[in-house]
């Protein structure tokens, strides 16, 4: 079984947020609005977390793209009362929307604040010109989450399904790298992100995740995230 993971090189990341928007279009994330923003309800499955340290003029800013960390020991899946969130055999932490009751316990349990809640029915407005509107751009491989459920990054697992299907039709095993990348990794212009099977030797992720620059967020919590970061410098 592959163990999918991601490596994000913070030294290469420019904080451009292409990953954020690519993810939003890929996964049909709600468009957002002033009200949602003011009330802290914008949903970004991969959020670029800014860290501004120091005082003028010795200021250091850092940008840290934070997708769901897909922990190997996820704190969120344990607490779900209905098993709507779980970790599958390949290490992807999934959220099953039709089962979720919206109690937000998993969201609170997540130490990375990577799970999001649909406070309202997403607004996919009708067009004023009578033609197609935003919903026409929905990716049919991903559902549109209804009001009241928790949602999160899935490592674009729909792409995995398709990639596996493709591999099978070509009668070859799924490659541990390259057959499938999430939308954010595909988009990254600085090539700061890479994705693949952490367990199979030789993949870029498995090499980089063991490099001396590699670290994980809040490792001390023992959640064993599968998103690795490479330090700057």
């Amino acid at each position: 079984m592959p163990r999918w993971g991601m490596v994000i090189d913070l030294d290469k990341c420019t904080g451009c947020q292409a990953c954020t928007v690519a993810c939003q279009t890929e996964n049909n994330l709600r468009p957002g609005s002033v009200e949602e923003s003011q009330r802290g309800r914008i949903i970004e499955w991969i959020h670029v977390l800014p860290v501004v340290e120091g005082e003028y003029p010795h200021v250091k800013t850092r940008y840290m793209p934070v997708p769901c960390q897909h922990c190997d020991n996820p704190p969120c899946t344990r607490v779900c009362p209905v098993r709507a969130t779980y970790k599958n055999d390949e290490g992807i932490v999934a959220q099953i929307y039709p089962r979720c009751i919206g109690c937000r316990y998993c969201v609170n349990a997540c130490p990375y604040t990577c799970k999001f809640f649909n406070w309202s029915q997403p607004d996919w407005p009708e067009s004023t010109h009578g033609g197609k509107s935003l919903s026409a751009a929905h990716n049919p491989d991903v559902s549109v989450r209804p009001v009241g459920v928790t949602e999160k990054c899935s490592f674009c697992s729909h792409r995995l399904i398709k990639a596996r299907e493709q591999a099978k039709s070509e009668e070859r095993p799924l490659r541990s790298e390259g057959d499938f990348v999430p939308a954010c990794v595909e988009a990254c212009p600085a090539e700061a992100m890479c994705f693949g099977d952490l367990d199979s030797p030789g993949t870029a992720v498995s090499e980089l995740s063991r490099s001396h620059r590699a670290f994980r967020l809040q490792e001390e919590l023992g959640a064993e995230p599968k998103v690795y970061y490479l330090t700057e410098g």
């Binding site: 599958n88 999934a94 929307y97 039709p98 491989d141 899935s154 697992s157 399904i161």
Partner: peptide, 8 residues
């Protein structure tokens, strides 16, 4: 029978 095999 993984949920993710069908649920998206």
């Amino acid at each position: 029978t993984d949920c993710l095999a069908c649920h998206k």
